[in-house]
Design a protein around this nucleic acid. Structure first.
Lengths: 215, 215
DNA sequence: ACAAAAGTGTTGCATATACACCCATGG
DNA sequence: CCATGGGTGTATATGCAACACTTTTGT
């Protein structure tokens, strides 16, 4: 392996994270706005270089922490992007992850060294993104919809204990369709994704709701 | 992106292919033996650098053609491997694919510039592999077993037309367990993976068998 | 006639879907 | 007493698993 061979020198490994939340019943994605060229002023997904002492998962966690201050996230790799011209800077492969968190926990910085702004965008109001991130975001949404019933990928969207109506609303927002309440509860309980804690939440003006937790 | 930054310079993008076949009822993988350091004399999976004008799928197809002379393969990406120390040469990410072909079509070269030998190994007689390829091969087998009923990943294991007993035997070899003939046929037909062609194969000493094709 | 290979159908079980009424609370 | 929100059960359909006998052919 001759690293100076022009056929394959100057390659870079990046990670990209499609970070989602549900806020007030709206499904949203976290974007940052670039300060410099290329794609100056364009919005893009969280991401960055994978350092030489990190595997891509570690790099993803570091990026996540740098950009949002959050460490405990469930994210899953769903694809790679390797078109030779996908970055104008150099030949760059991106390993793409999807994750879902509670947006209230993000103390995001509106301006950093490389970004001038950061915000949550409703999924139906996404601006044109830089690089190939529009494609990555689309794939991430597909993947999330596919996996939402197969794993605890929403684990960090809510506090430790949550009510079933809250969770139900989140699923409906992400899948963008109505789900039957009874079947929804049965499915998550039977597949051992959530568990009844025996506790209830009392909210003025409403019937008490049972509290559940993820397993 | 400063490509000379020591944090992330000298990165490489590789592809690895776990190429399987079933021959005489035995599930096998194609391995090549390295001629040079590192891992001199060790057996490894097919693989190599992704060039700067290729995406990883193109690189995979090129490697496949260089090493086996075959172009039409169904392969699927199943994971990436990014541990910083996985190659002693330089920081190297591998994008791993799995594929299945008819071994009779491979006109493999026993010696090339970088390899001194190449052969098919029964899955229960795999030598110790170089790099992290033992791990990659294990993951590839898992993935193949998971996906074998969901896609036409075996499409190139047989000629255009094949009998159901042949296909049945291949599934049993790969999954390493018995499958009920009746349920097997129903499943593949109902899921529109294969189709009855109306033709039959006549073999001396046997009852005629229907010929099927992949959809 | 029998041994070897290929063809075929039914039943039960588990999982997913469709669907409607009761209860608690605050106004 | 009614509107809102939360809780619950049953009946049907669909997908998967278990299971045994008949037909053809060559010896």
């Amino acid at each position: 392996m001759d690293i100076s061979n022009p056929l394959y020198k100057n390659q870079g490994i990046h990670v990209a994270l499609a970070l989602f939340t549900v806020e007030n019943g709206r499904f949203k994605v976290f974007l940052i706005q670039r300060k410099n060229q290329p794609y100056k002023d364009k919005w893009i997904l969280i991401g960055g270089a994978c350092y030489n002492n990190e595997d891509t998962e570690t790099a993803m966690k570091r990026e996540m922490f740098e950009k949002t201050g959050i460490k405990d996230v469930n994210f899953q790799m769903f694809n790679i992007y390797s078109r030779p011209d996908r970055s104008p800077v150099c030949r760059m492969l991106a390993v793409a992850y999807v994750g879902v968190i509670d947006c209230k926990r993000v103390e995001y910085l509106r301006e950093t060294l490389k970004t001038q702004d950061a915000d949550w965008f409703p999924i139906d109001k996404i601006p044109e993104l830089g690089y190939d991130h529009t494609e990555i975001l689309g794939d991430a949404i597909e993947y999330l919809k596919e996996k939402i019933f197969d794993s605890a990928i929403l684990k960090h969207l809510f506090p430790k204990y949550f009510t079933l109506p809250d969770l139900h609303g989140a699923y409906e927002s992400i899948l963008n369709k109505k789900l039957d309440r009874r079947n929804f509860r049965k499915r998550l309980l039977l597949q051992n994704i959530i568990e009844d804690t025996g506790m209830v939440q009392e909210v003025a003006g409403k019937k008490t709701a049972k509290l559940y937790k993820f397993l």
